[in-house]
């Protein structure tokens, strides 16, 4: 075992050692092939969708499909509905998760596992089974609760102008993402030391939360909000099965009669979602380089 060296040396002397420039070449080819294939697979549908929307049979290039989006029946209503739902969901989800996340870090670390489980559940339960449960509750409501004030509530949450029930459902779906980004944000700023320092300087608890923690959490809250908004704007399953016409449902409905417009809207909504997410990731990068 002790002396491998001389043996190897002779091998080198006879010139069997690989030339230095020769080795890295093979992986480079392999890598190029993988990257090119990936680029084709991921770019072709995007390019093709765009081509599909701008090429009118027998007329050639035209951006009409994009112009028609705005005049199409139901566009404004459904988009506004989705945006409204998004804003309401963001407000509610932040109001619920931020105090919980702070409390778990400061006061009750023993509740952390509970919170983790609660925030993983919506990931385990597919949205369609969740909506199956909700719709059953809503269907049974009238039978069992007709005489109680709860019945009025049940009707109210299903108001088609602003279905609160969707907000409630979306908050549940958004919980895991919101909690994770807030918790990561709290982890990055060492809440305990910050709040102890503020308390030491005479700040009251509400003051600590409003003036110390929230300003330092701005990017984490922004990321939670963006993710929630993207989720709400793209959510189809629950809204469709509860028969509310949100934006994705509107796209789906018009696809039957106006294929080109529906693809145009898809491309359009994709762009918006991407811009949101890109803004989010670059904001995250800035935050990291800043600290």
């Amino acid at each position: 075992m002790a002396s491998l060296t001389p043996q190897v040396t002779t091998q080198v002397a006879t010139g069997t050692a690989p030339a230095r420039g020769g080795r890295p070449r093979r992986p480079r080819v392999w890598r190029g092939v993988v990257l090119v294939l990936a680029a084709v697979y991921f770019l072709v549908p995007l390019i093709a969708s765009f081509v599909f929307t701008v090429e009118v049979p027998n007329q050639g290039f035209s951006l009409d499909a994009y112009g028609q989006i705005f005049s199409a029946e139901g566009f404004g209503g459904s988009l506004l509905l989705s945006l409204g739902l998004g804003v309401a969901t963001i407000v509610l989800v932040l109001l619920l998760t931020l105090p919980a996340a702070v409390a778990v870090r400061l006061g009750a670390p023993r509740l952390r596992p509970v919170l983790e489980v609660v925030c993983t559940l919506p990931l385990v339960v597919p949205p369609i089974t969740f909506v199956a449960g909700i719709s059953t509750v809503l269907r049974w409501g009238p039978d069992y609760l007709a005489t109680t004030p709860l019945y009025q509530t049940m009707i109210a949450v299903q108001n088609p102008d602003f279905p609160v029930v969707l907000v409630l459902a979306y908050v549940v779906l958004a919980l895991p993402f919101a909690y994770r980004s807030l918790d990561a944000g709290l982890g990055a700023i060492d809440v305990r030391t910050l709040s102890e320092a503020a308390r030491n300087l005479g700040a009251s608890w509400p003051h600590v939360l409003l003036r110390v923690i929230i300003p330092n959490m701005r990017s984490a809250m922004a990321s939670a909000s963006f993710l929630t908004l993207a989720l709400v704007l793209g959510e189809f399953t629950i809204a469709r099965l509860l028969s509310f016409e949100t934006f994705p449902n509107w796209i789906y409905r018009i696809s039957g009669s106006q294929a080109q417009v529906s693809v145009a809207v898809s491309v359009f909504s994709l762009l918006i979602t991407w811009l949101l997410l890109l803004a989010l990731s670059s904001a995250g990068a800035r935050q990291r380089s800043g600290s």
Binding site: F52, G234, F236, S266
Partner: peptide
């Protein structure tokens, strides 16, 4: 990875 749902389906329908 976040691109799913209806728009994804339509993008592919428009392609293939």
């Amino acid at each position: 990875a976040n691109f799913g749902g209806v728009p994804l389906a339509f993008a592919w329908i428009a392609t293939l």
